[in-house]
Amino acid sequence: MTRSDAVMIEARGVEKWYPNGFHALRGVDLTVEQGEVVVIMGPSGSGKSTFLRTFNALEDFQKGSISVDGITLSDDLRHIDAIRREVGMVFQQFNLFPHLTVLQNLTLAPVLVRKLPKAEVQRRALDLLERVGIAEQAHKYPGQLSGGQQQRVAIARSLCMEPRILLFDEPTSALDPEMVQEVLEVMQALARDGMTMVVVTHEVRFARQVAHRVVLMDAGVVVESAPPEQFFTDPQHERSRQFLSQIS
């Protein structure tokens, strides 16, 4: 594995209250190094998706600090836009743009945001579609693809911006069981290529095989953070044991 010690994400004491007063994050710390694959697990409502979404400012937070790729997250819009250019995100519901073709979904942001020539972006987009195994669907609309294909397009769309970090928010939870594998394989290949990834998921097998570290969140705090071997065979905390017994 190609892992250097450069820190890509550094979150310190992150706290978030929703407008209705709910205390969603209660002082979360996390450090993600370059090339590292971190899987965040936890019961629903534990704040894991909320935490993930603070990394590219889709959610704000009230206390603590987060820096991504050396840029400190603040209210400064230029910083937020700069971070979003470097951080790709894959959603549970794919969120492909239904009015654009697959190819246009991929090329939209690089052409508009990175101001790259269209022909070059299209070449790269087709390469990426080839890589995720759906080059022949480039001119179809998202609505004509299966869920697994849509999610692979969504991953390719994020990659087309050449991000340094990829965030996955339960990427396989909305998929039919037989389509989960094709998406996980793409993610596994990305991890092998050294992409820094933070993945919120319930897929134990993926966590075991691909993750460098598994983080368990519960009630807005990190309960345990350990390499997958240790996490799944010898959890240190009572809450982790309880969680593992529930999902296995």
């Binding site: 979003r84 790709g88 995100m89 959603f91 519901q93 969120n95 743009f97 508009l112 769309r157 911006m161």
Partner: peptide
Amino acid sequence: PAGQLEAARSLGLPMPQALIH
């Protein structure tokens, strides 16, 4: 769906472009 705007914004599109495109 709110996810459309979130996806556009997370790709780095500024608000006006996310709305227009």
